[in-house]
Design a protein around this nucleic acid. Structure first.
Lengths: 204, 204
DNA sequence: ACCTGAACACCGTTCAAGT
DNA sequence: ACCTGAACACCGTTCAAGT
């Protein structure tokens, strides 16, 4: 054994991230373990730890992949509507759909927490920022005349709320369906919040 | 050893739940383990498993305790305001404060997931239901004339959103503070959403 | 330089054996 | 009946030893 040199560092890292993504998609975040990943790529845990600092870095890479997919879906949604309000609704529903379609991956993104002392890498934070930028841009187009501060406040409020509805949707699927679909809640949130917010701005 | 009979079943269970609560409060949900709990109450893991089905049941009991505290705080908030809109704002801010003050406990409630196949016990679900009932009552008082269906829809939408803001607040504490405090987001959400919702109802 | 395999300190859970 | 302690099958992480 030792020194097989079958794969480059980059190849091993890519294989490990892929294996982690598969584990998340099938068994969820809790199903990920260093030993399982190692076994699936045909190396031992030792090799895994020469390519990644720890298991969290590996999960972060897998989650970053999902975030990139999510961002792509949201950007597509953005370009599919031209009216500002419809655009935001479309983006919010795409967010909801993504969570519904890729439940395990979505949950892995938002359920994974770094242990104390770990800092979120820049390349990961960049993806989160890109997500918020997209929303800010869409909200700005709805009310181009307003302060940047106000746009930021509204964007954050709106998106936290959209996120909250997605979470509730994944958690208790059963008993909210009797009352209304998550799409109905989403519609209610976005239209009511933004209508009142836009109206408030036109008073000034 | 064996057959000490120092404590009744109920005493052991109470001690174990208390120990779990302490572990959550100090180390967070990830810091809980059967061995730690057992050690802290002066028994072995074996005894723990004679009193609880598994570790999840233990965590559920600890979380139920937190939920009861949260519910009490929300009910107090309810009675501290008489105007319907102010009342809802007060309840939402109390929810936010509770999450901020008891961060670990709050996170434990919403981050703990039962493994597949586990059903949430009735005594636990009852506490969640009580929480939603409180909100529904408060929303109903804001618009007593509207359909029960509409009240339920608005309550769920509003509370999912409030919850979303709390989550964002706990996750990224640092960089949202430059833009606005979570209290500002909360205020923005509740007033805008409910103003538009109330206005919509008065049109009919 | 690259990779392994064993080791360490942990998990959740079970259950024969002791009193 | 009650409780223990060892066992089983897992974890994340490290590192001396091999090629």
């Amino acid at each position: 054994m030792a020194r097989r040199n079958d794969h480059t560092r980059e190849e091993i890292q890519g294989m490990a991230i892929d294996a982690t993504r598969t584990l998340i998609a099938t068994e969820g975040l809790e199903g990920v373990s260093a030993r399982k990943v190692a076994q699936q790529i045909g190396y031992t845990v030792g090799t895994l730890y020469q390519n990644f600092e720890n298991i969290h870095e590996l999960i972060l890479h897998a989650n970053a992949f999902s975030l990139t997919q999510l961002l792509a879906a949201l950007e597509q949604a953005y370009h599919q509507e031209s009216k500002p309000m419809q655009r935001i609704i479309r983006i919010a529903n795409t967010y909801l759909d993504f969570g519904q379609m890729h439940e395990k991956q979505w949950a892995a993104i938002f359920r994974h927490t770094l242990p104390q002392g770990f800092v979120m890498p820049d390349w990961y934070q960049a993806r989160i920022d890109a997500l918020f930028s997209l929303i800010e841009r869409a909200v700005w187009e709805l009310a181009p005349g307003r302060d940047k501060k106000q746009i930021q406040l509204a964007s954050r409020t709106l998106w936290s709320s959209v996120h909250g509805i997605c979470i509730l949707n994944i958690g208790n699927k059963l008993y909210s369906d009797n009352i209304a679909t998550p799409q109905t809640l989403m519609q209610s949130l976005v239209t009511h919040y933004l209508n009142a917010w836009v109206r408030e701005g036109s008073k000034a």
